[in-house]
Design a protein around this nucleic acid. Sequence first.
DNA 1: AACCTTTGTTCAAATTTTTTGAAATACTAG
DNA 2: CTAGTATTTCAAAAAATTTGAACAAAGGTT
Lengths: 301, 301
Amino acid sequence: MAYAVTLEALRVLEAIHQLGSFAAAAEALFKVPSALTYTVKKLEDDLGVALFDRSRQKAVLTPAGHLVLEQGRAILAAAVRLEDSIKQFESGWEPKLRIARDTVLLESPLMSVVGDFLSQNRPVELTLSEEAVGGGWDALQDDRADLVIGATGELPKGNVHIRAIGEIEFVFAVSPTHPLALTDGPITAAQLRQYPAIVVADSSKILPARSSGIFESRQVLRVDTMRSKIQAQCLGLGVGYLPKHRIVDELSAGRLVLRQCELPRPNQMAYLAWRKDEPGLGLSWFVEQLAVQDWRLCHSR
Amino acid sequence: MAYAVTLEALRVLEAIHQLGSFAAAAEALFKVPSALTYTVKKLEDDLGVALFDRSRQKAVLTPAGHLVLEQGRAILAAAVRLEDSIKQFESGWEPKLRIARDTVLLESPLMSVVGDFLSQNRPVELTLSEEAVGGGWDALQDDRADLVIGATGELPKGNVHIRAIGEIEFVFAVSPTHPLALTDGPITAAQLRQYPAIVVADSSKILPARSSGIFESRQVLRVDTMRSKIQAQCLGLGVGYLPKHRIVDELSAGRLVLRQCELPRPNQMAYLAWRKDEPGLGLSWFVEQLAVQDWRLCHSR
DNA sequence: AACCTTTGTTCAAATTTTTTGAAATACTAG
DNA sequence: CTAGTATTTCAAAAAATTTGAACAAAGGTT
């Protein structure tokens, strides 16, 4: 089974067409004209079709020649892409990257960084997901994510690399229509207990779920994301602490009001975390960029 | 500028992967194993990456090897397609065929023939369009169509090849709710004049438009296609002659009723027409098939 | 454990393919 | 008509590929 087409023959055809003559093409390819004559003739013989009309001094492509030229272009382009792919692959860029954002963080700073990465056109497939409470560490442990942004609380066991990105300050805020909005001094535990507590559920799948922001309440409303919790509290459905950087707009628009609370809620450090000892270029790039991104936290690095 | 990838190397890689060993691949390719060792090693050196893990007896593809294999498959397939295209091109099949159907004909017989052609998987791109009144001849003249099916009336000037496919019989039919449905004898010109005439507009773009089925009327409703005209008349919007073979269902369902009319409407011969003196295999095939297709006309050939 | 089979590589010789340079022929422009 | 340019032919030179034999190591069977 003999094959007629070679990539070199397709390149020769392209060069002759582009430069207008065998002589010019030979010069550009650092060959002598008779080498091109040999290559084209071999292709013609093997395909069984004339690719050039040679009735004039300058050889002119036949319709069949044009057909080979057009389809040959796509093939040559694919061959270049293959060689480029291998270079990229060997260059250290990983084919896939899974990034998990803790729900306590704003989405837009992450998207901004993702946009920068996408505009670099790397052959890296990105997957973004959202985790809550201990879910970030869990996703790392469970190999559901390569990189976690915004993980809080105790560091998990095992070899994990971290970068602190800032402190999350929690404030007690309620809807202005909520009865507790009328309280003058610090709200007591007894007062809190009378209203449903709104809680973001831990998204962990393997590690034990963690309680976050739960105080004794007659009722608990669990939601998936911080965004949902903010909305529920704006609607006056319940009470709870909220990360201050997430409710700047709601406070200034009067949809939420700050109140003092007897039960303290200390700040939490938020981390960037990953497990790979030798991260690929993609992971390294994201770690660097996300570490210096403005997440609008306190004491940001 | 040296290129690493050759089509032969990609074929060798595919054979080794498919057959599981250098030895089996060599046998299938009618070469000796050391020839494959040479080819693979050359590719590896030129690409600068190991394509096989050779720590065991049988060589196993590396991740980079798999990448080259996958992308290489697409390239090899494209090369086969190119060689097939050339064979087809030289075989006489044209790359494109534009077929125009006159609106007076049913669509389904044409689609049936088109379906047969498509199932042959020829590298011929089909374009179907619809013309009305003198539009078929116009499309041929204007090089908007390679083949016209159902053209009627006077033959155009110039060199045109034709095949008669049958006679179109026109009948006067109205909606049963139309006042003229109540007429007993032949409908007079005066009676006709009282109701809107429904007319299919000539789709010609270059040749002078032709009047078809127009008699003196107070109002004229122009539509693009015969299908629209039939529907308008079923709705009782107006009157006119219709090709009998197009309204078989409507007549038997009682949506239209036949009536006698004082003004005669003679039958018309319908033609298959093309201009090329030396048609390619595609055009020839369609002429033959469409000529013997059952268009449900009178005196079909 | 011993023996046999299979796999892939190395190496140099043999074979094939490609490239070169010179000569010849023909087109094209001034 | 002349000079310049384009392409091909041809045989020699160079480069690339294939072959066959020998070898080492993995893998399977008894």
